[in-house]
């Protein structure tokens, strides 16, 4: 069965046509790496997949279930099956690392927050949260404040949170873009290890082509709101991947002549 099936997907932000007839299917247990320049619609696609941004035309099926016109309760149930790893980690500040991991269970708990707070959670839930933290190697930081953690450690906590969620699909939106190369590689290793352990499906966007050549089963490339590349990882050519970043890549591309580069990039 397909984990994700997207057919003829269109999405507009006001008048901006972001996704322009997108087709993609991902089978269960597959790990797909999604490439594309900034502003090509990758993040929008990711947000459409779990209903954070509703799409306008076309259809998305998650594990055989259509994502259109779901009642709020059904949408929440579907979201439980999709774990999301963000570029900016998105941990809640001012609560402990352990509590952040427990938040992963929010969707499963009938009483929501009440039975997910560290002080009220069941022993079973607390043990599962600790196991998830042990899996990502941060059990010793359980009581720490999130701000005291490095970027790589924060992303590990975020992965532990999706483990807590018991998701079947993981959507990772540039999970290593704000990390240094070494930490980024560690996070990718960890992510790929846990998804193989649990037989999860992964859709992961990346910016580093070298990383893309090393992880995942399949490489999918996006350019200006469409999919233009879809090959098994072993057969991908560097030229094809680099082509994704040339020419008209953005969905909001202004004509080149009106945007002269005045200052050289400093980073």
């Amino acid at each position: 069965m397909n984990a994700i099936t997207i057919t003829e997907l269109h999405k507009y932000y006001a008048t901006l046509h972001v996704l322009r007839g997108l087709n993609l299917s991902v089978t269960q247990g597959e790990c797909v790496i999604l490439l594309g320049a900034n502003g090509c619609g990758k993040s929008t696609l990711m947000r459409c997949l779990n209903g954070l941004a509703p799409h306008d035309q076309g259809s998305i099926h998650i594990l055989g279930e259509p994502l259109t016109r779901l009642s709020p309760a059904k949408l929440r149930r579907l979201r439980q099956k999709i774990g999301v790893v963000f570029q900016q980690f998105n941990l809640v500040q001012n609560v402990s690392v352990f509590q952040n991991v427990l938040y992963g269970a929010l969707g499963q708990q009938r009483l929501g927050l009440l039975t997910s707070l560290s002080c009220f959670a069941s022993n079973e839930l607390r043990e599962r949260a600790m196991a998830a933290l042990e899996r990502v190697g941060l059990a010793h930081k359980a009581q720490a404040d999130c701000r005291a953690l490095s970027g790589g450690q924060q992303q590990r906590v975020a992965i532990a949170r999706t483990l807590m969620q018991d998701a079947e699909i993981i959507i990772a939106d540039e999970p290593v873009a704000s990390l240094d190369p070494k930490a980024g590689r560690e996070i990718m290793d960890l992510l790929l290890d846990v998804v193989t352990e649990r037989g999860m499906t992964v859709l992961c966007t990346l910016h580093q082509l070298e990383l893309a050549q090393q992880y995942g089963d399949r490489i999918v490339g996006m350019k200006a709101g469409r999919i233009v590349l879809d090959v098994p990882r072993q057969q991908v050519a560097m030229d094809d991947m680099q082509h994704l970043y040339q020419g008209e890549t953005r969905v909001d591309q202004p004509p080149l002549s009106t945007t002269p580069r005045l200052t050289p990039a400093t980073h």
Binding site: F86, F89, N90, Q93, Y103, L106
Partner: peptide, 20 residues
Amino acid sequence: GPSEALSATGAGKLSVIGGA
């Protein structure tokens, strides 16, 4: 961001408010 992360786990609106 954090509110979105909690919504993405399937949490209800009240849980997101209280949790994030």
